[in-house]
């Protein structure tokens, strides 16, 4: 066992899969020789060769179209979209092609692609380097959407995604690449050193898609989160002094509905947290599912804490970001109301 940060854990997963399966190919803008702007593919070309990990033209639609065509012939492409903010030119390929191919062809063709993309804010990246588009993909039937929150999960989930026969959108919370950011931006930056989930085994292992993790058991209120917000929620729970159960969804499609319902039925209260703007966000779906399935188990209305319904702003990074203060306030409201 060794300690890895998240970006190194992702690099490790990619390296394991390149060694494990000759059908795995990795490509994207700047991912080859240079090793990616976040270093996720560092050293892979040198170790596994030019034809296993290579650079592409700056054309996100072309990258995904190419990946689909390769996938149809039996390869397992792992394209990178440099920032999730740049994935929209490929949206048609993901929605109209990757997600529909198996269905419309009567099962004759499918494309087992895993689209990796750094997403989310907290890095002063402005609106084109900070957005969280997961709800858009969750709405597209036929796509799976996976979001890790730790180095251990990132490696295991990424290997599971690559081995999955469905197209997977693998969103990497870039603020977590180097440390478990808890939203207290004014405090010293934490690294993954010493964090239990930074213990990453060597070699091949998987974390199943569609299985949430209870990262903090509790009795008073359920907090549903994923990505960076898992760590921010944990900080908020500590700040608020509430015995909350924090559930890291890990994948939003497939969604671990059983774990969610069991937790909310136990606590009777629920706060949903995500970075993406609130209106039409994935929190709305979570809220609806809980309302439909455990209305009579709820003690108080469900709260959503999310990004505001504005574009991601630059100067207002910490006003926009749903930090521990806003989450703690929601926890207190939920605990005080009955």
């Amino acid at each position: 066992m060794r300690e890895l940060n998240m970006v190194k854990a992702i690099n490790d997963a990619l390296g394991v899969m390149l060694a494990h399966d000759p059908n795995v190919l990795i490509f994207g803008e700047d991912v080859g020789y240079f090793g990616g702007v976040f270093r996720a593919t560092e050293g892979l070309q040198a170790k596994h060769g030019l034809k296993r990990c290579f650079d592409t033209p700056i054309a996100e639609g072309g990258i995904i179209a190419t990946a689909i065509g390769m996938g149809v012939q039996g390869l397992r492409p792992v394209p990178e979209i440099q920032f999730a903010d740049y994935i929209l030119p490929a949206f048609d390929q993901l929605v109209s092609e990757a997600a529909r191919l198996r269905y419309r062809s009567g099962g004759e063709f499918w494309a087992p692609i895993t689209v990796r993309s750094p997403y989310g804010g907290g890095i002063f990246g402005g609106q084109t380097h900070s957005q969280s588009p997961e709800a858009i993909f969750a709405h597209v039937t036929g796509l799976k959407t996976v979001i890790p929150s730790t180095p251990y999960d990132a490696k295991g989930l990424l290997i599971a995604a690559i081995e999955c026969d469905d197209p997977v959108i693998f969103l990497e919370p870039k603020r977590l690449y180097n440390g478990p950011f808890d939203g207290h931006h004014d405090r010293e930056i934490a690294s993954w050193a010493g964090h239990p989930a930074a213990q990453v085994p060597e070699g091949h292992y998987t974390v199943p898609l569609g299985k949430a993790a209870i990262v903090r058991p509790g009795e008073a209120v359920t907090v549903l989160a994923y990505g960076t917000m898992v760590h921010v929620a944990l900080a908020a729970v500590a700040d608020a002094g509430v015995d909350a159960e924090v559930v890291d969804l890990r994948s939003i499609v497939p969604l671990d509905i059983e774990t969610i319902l069991a937790s909310v039925n136990k606590t009777g209260r629920c706060v949903i947290v995500h970075e993406a703007s609130r209106f039409g966000g994935f929190g709305g779906e979570l809220s609806a599912l809980i309302q439909e399935r455990c209305f009579y188990g709820l003690e108080t209305p469900i709260e959503r804490v999310a990004g505001w319904d504005t574009p991601y702003p630059h100067a207002f990074e910490w006003d926009y970001f749903p930090g521990p203060g806003r989450i703690a306030a929601a926890l207190r409201r939920v605990m005080e109301s009955n």
Binding site: A67, I68, G69
Partner: peptide, 21 residues
């Protein structure tokens, strides 16, 4: 290959498929 009503979306699949070959 599977047809779709969207125009042009499979042109790049052919390229990817050929690259796989």
């Amino acid at each position: 290959y599977s047809l779709s009503g969207n125009l042009g979306t499979r042109y790049g699949h052919a390229v990817g498929w050929a690259m796989a070959s």
